[in-house]
Amino acid sequence: MSDIAKPPRQIQMGVIGPILALVILVAMGAAMNPNFLGWDNITNVLARSAFIGIIAVGMTFVITAGGLDLSVGSMAAFVAGLMILVMNKALPTMGVGVPVVLLGMAVALGAGLVAGLVNGLLITRLGIEAFIVTLGSMGIYRSLVTWLADGGTLSLDFGLRTFYQPVYYGGLFGISWPIIVFAVVVVLGEILMRSTAFGRHCAAIGSNDQVARYSSVRVARVRLLTYVMLGVLVGVATIMYVPRLGSASSATGLLWELEAIAAVIIGGTVLKGGFGRVWGTVIGVLILTLIGNILNLTDFVSPYLNGAIQGAIIVLAVVLQRESKPGH
């Protein structure tokens, strides 16, 4: 620590905890396998973090404002399925090309927006618990995608998939699109959270919605906006996801909601709301992805125990953040 007189607000474990956990993981990975820090592996890890990451940024706002959304995984599957169906339907008339891909993207964003809006309206206008509303919509979207796929798998037309593939695999300067989009979403999210009235309103509502209401914060509208934003981000993630394998089934996006929520909490956002940290969420997502990556790259433990290791590291990462809460 530095010798400068410490201000009352010191650098706490809450801030360096997640970073510390990430650094330890990276060091472990590098020690166990020389390919770990190779460019290919790094881009793989970042690109596969992008789906959960983009969603988790939206989830950070929802949780900060005292909400929760369990439906994002199913929503992603449903949006992906819908997008594939529409693109396949439009293919004979529009032909393989940019317009049909743009149509697909519009469908994804639109469907995500509507899905988020429905969740948000049920929660804010009807005053139903977010947990219950989104638990319900989780089941609904999961069933809908199974139904759309007739119990099987929806696959994008092969020619169209080849055309659309660069959206996942291509990129700029050797950095693939999912990573770029993820970075842009994170930067925008960080600005939104830290430097705008919206971000402060989210924290105020999550902290105490009564006080926020008396302070003339439009509580319902801000809450609604967090769900809509999350829905749109699910759409964005789906746009990146579909070109990867060109398919959606009932197994798509399974447990994404829990991974996103875990990433948010590992990153230091308070589950009860009132405080959110977008950059922390990024660290959280990277930690989650890295655990799986390292376990695959080493033969250190039986694959049967992967889940146990994952669970232990998640808990550890949060333990690292514990601090004697000053002035809290």
Binding site: N33, N35, R244
Partner: peptide
């Protein structure tokens, strides 16, 4: 038996 998981696992096999 999952496409996404297998994609990830195979990427890591290829790195390794």
């Amino acid at each position: 038996w999952n496409r996404d998981t297998s994609f990830t696992v195979m990427q890591d096999f290829l790195s390794k």
